[in-house]
Design a protein around this nucleic acid. Structure first.
Lengths: 199, 199
DNA sequence: TCATAGACTAGACTGTAGTCTAATGATATA
DNA sequence: TATATCATTAGACTACAGTCTAGTCTATGA
C-alpha cells in the first residue's frame, strides 16, 4: 500500500504534512465531514499530489494504524517483563492492545479501517504477514509450545486464527456500539474464556 | 431501516422488483460494477423511485440479510431436535448459521454488509434487538441456566456479548480472506473453544 | 363524489472520491 | 555539463451515490 522506497525527501515531507493536516481536520470535524478537496486546500497542495502520496482517503487513517502496529513491540516487551508463562502473556498482550487502540487511535479511525479493509483490496496491510501484531502472537504461541502452557493446541495455525478472530470480533463489536463501554471491558471476558481452558 | 407500514400494494411490488433485478445484476457483474443508475435503467424505473424504496445501495443487500435472519428460527428448531443440552445447541446453532450464511448469502454480500454496518448509522438492523439471531441466542443462554449446562456464566449479558463477538469475529475474518476456506471450517475451532470450558 | 394527505415517480442536480494529462522538478549517470 | 528518467504537482475531468423539487397517482373519509 505504501511503498516509500522511491520517494524524494520532499515527497516524504509533503506526505507527512498532508497527513498531519488531515488528521487534525478529522479530529476537529469528523472523518466524513472533511472532503479530500478540503484537505488539499488546507494543506496548500493539489489532488494530484494527494493521490501521489495516498491511494485513498481512508489510507490516511491506515497509515496511522500502521504506525501503531510498530509500537506493539514495545507493548509486548513490557508484557514479557510482567508475565512468564506464554498463556499469561497472550492475555495481557491482547488487553494491552485494546487499551492502546482505544487511547491512541480511537473508535472513528477503527471504524473507517474496518469498513475499508473488508471491501477494498487496496488495504492489504490489514492482513499482511508483516504486521508486528501477527508476528508477536505467533511468537507467543511458539513460546507456549515450549513452556508447556499451550501444548494442548491442535495446530499453531489454527490457534493463531482463533486469536485473530477474537481480536477482530471484539474490536468490530466495540465499533458497532454507540455507548461508552471501553474496549478492554468489552474484550476481557472473551479472551479470558479462551485462555481459561489452558489453565 | 425499512418501515413498510405505509406502502401501497404497488409500492411493495416495485420494491420487490427492483430488489430482484439488482440482486441478479450483482450476482452477474459484482456489486461494485453495478451503479444505481444501471439498476434503475434495467428495472425501468427512476432514481426517485429507487430511493423511495431503499435508503441506500447497500440496503438492497441488507434487505436480503434481514430475510435470512427470519430463517434462523427454522434452523434453530432443527437444532433443538438434534441436541438436548443448551450448550450443545449453542455450538450446533452457530455452525448452522455459518453454513447458511455461506450458502444463502455469500461472501460479497457479507462484506458489503459488514463494511456498511460499522460506518453507517442507517444500518440499525444489524445491531437491533429485534434480530431473530439475538433472540435465539438469548433463549439458548436462558435454557442453559435452567438445564445447568451454562450455570457457571457470570452474567447473561456478558456471555451474550462473548458469543456475538465470536460470530462477528469469525465472519469478519472469513470476509477478509481471499482463499476458499469455508466459513464453518474457519469458525469451528473458536466456538468449540468457548463451549469446551463448560463441559 | 370531491378533497386531502401522503405515497410514488421522474429526472435534473449536487457533492465528492478518485483518474488523467500535461507540465515541472530532482537525481543519477555519461 | 547534458540528458534521460522518474517523482512530483496542478487542476480539469469523470463516475456515481445520494438529494431535491415538481408533479402524479391512490386510498380514505366526509
Amino acid at each position: 500500500m505504501f511503498n516509500n522506497d522511491n520517494k524524494t525527501g520532499g515527497g516524504i515531507q509533503k506526505q507527512q504534512h498532508i497527513m498531519t493536516v488531515a488528521l487534525t481536520l478529522f479530529e476537529k470535524y469528523g472523518y466524513d465531514k472533511i472532503s479530500v478537496d478540503r484537505i488539499v486546500k488546507e494543506s496548500k497542495t493539489s489532488k494530484g499530489s494527494f493521490y501521489q502520496h495516498f491511494p485513498s482517503k481512508s489510507s490516511i487513517f491506515m497509515m496511522r494504524f500502521m504506525e501503531m502496529d510498530k509500537s506493539y513491540v514495545n507493548i509486548y516487551s513490557q508484557v514479557r517483563l510482567e508475565h512468564h508463562l506464554a498463556i499469561d502473556r497472550l492475555e495481557a498482550f491482547c488487553l494491552s492492545v485494546y487499551t492502546s487502540i482505544e487511547k491512541e487511535l480511537g473508535k472513528e479511525l477503527m471504524r473507517v479501517i474496518y469498513s475499508a479493509a473488508i471491501i477494498d483490496q487496496k488495504h492489504t496491510f490489514f492482513t499482511s504477514e508483516d504486521r508486528k501484531l501477527f508476528k508477536i502472537i505467533l511468537e507467543i504461541i511458539e513460546d507456549g509450545e515450549k513452556d508447556g502452557s499451550l501444548e494442548e493446541i491442535i495446530s499453531k495455525k489454527q490457534f493463531f486464527q482463533v486469536i485473530i478472530q477474537t481480536l477482530l470480533g471484539t474490536i468490530y463489536y466495540w465499533g458497532l456500539q454507540y455507548d461508552n463501554q471501553s474496549l478492554v471491558e468489552i474484550g476481557t471476558p472473551l479472551i479470558q474464556q479462551i485462555v481459561k481452558s489452558y489453565k
